[in-house]
Amino acid sequence: MTVILTDRAEHRVTTVGTFLSAADAERVTGWTLKPEGMCRDEACVPLPAGAVRGGAVDVAAFWRKLGGPVAATGAGDVLALGAPAESRNAALEGLEAPDFTLPDIDGVPRTLSQLRGRKVFMATWASW
């Protein structure tokens, strides 16, 4: 069992190396394996040679092709797929506030977009 971390989720999947079943690859990345590559909405990203084997996808190779960073433990049992810089920049330059859900101090999930219609002053802090 391998743990794959994305910016918003933690997945536990069966892997062979960094190969996942197409279904797990879709669940983790949001991209679907098709003959033309990994696809989402109208976009398709051709996969590098050797990145599909017996219906399984090399998720690390795909993610790097997408422009995203992959960090992994030495044992390969935990991978973190970071957001590609260009997708972050596109979102920031578009000015729509990136949405997120986080728990409040009592564990109640709060979603930023629930506050649409109100001005929001968002500030970070830390105890350290």
Binding site: D7, L92, L102, S113, M122, A123, T124, A126
Partner: peptide, 28 residues
Amino acid sequence: LIDTDHLVSDLYNLVNVPQAIWIDERGI
């Protein structure tokens, strides 16, 4: 809110605390 993985720093490209972002009624 409690952000154990620093998701907000990731999404908004923050580097320090405190940092603030102003968001209008449209979510802009």
